[in-house]
Amino acid sequence: MRLLRALLLALPFVAAAQSTPAIPPDSVYQLSLRLTTQAGTAAGLDLQRGHPVLLSMFYGSCPAACPMLITGIKVYESHLDEAARARLRVLMVSFDAARDTPDKLQALARLHRVDAARWTFASAGDTDARKLAALLGVRYRRQPDGNFDHSLLITLLDADGRVLATTAKIVGDDAFLDKLRGATAAPPGK
């Protein structure tokens, strides 16, 4: 029983090892989170594993900065050719789970006219959001009026969740774009 209890306590931090290859020790997918997607389903951070991912944090009621962030990601995407873009996934994680319900997230996805096949909007509970922000280097603080003071950061992950690049510039970071092109290029031999 003691071992079982220890294993259960260990679960929140350790991604369950299954038949898929082990998650690299420096991958963000080491962090086990419980996300709720715009479809209302539960998912882990690694829901898009196998693809390069643009990962960012936001909240839906954000008046200006977050719409700019989403637009900025779409602009970076637009610099890719169609085949490269098809390989890319985008994950937007809200730290305002109370207000950013699945319905609200769906509405945001429609409003920003994102490619629903490749973009996922999700929310995380307070503890999980804090851990993810700490991992990525995103700063945020809930204000008394319910809005958030937060930094903007876009993180590029490889197919196994390792960080390839980050940018705080929602437009015009050429070095970041180069990394994005590299991450979404056709695999050798294909």
């Binding site: 603080r141 003071d149 937060h150």
Partner: peptide, 8 residues
């Protein structure tokens, strides 16, 4: 909240 002590 060590990482949000200052304004963003």
């Amino acid at each position: 909240d060590f990482n949000s002590l200052l304004p963003a």
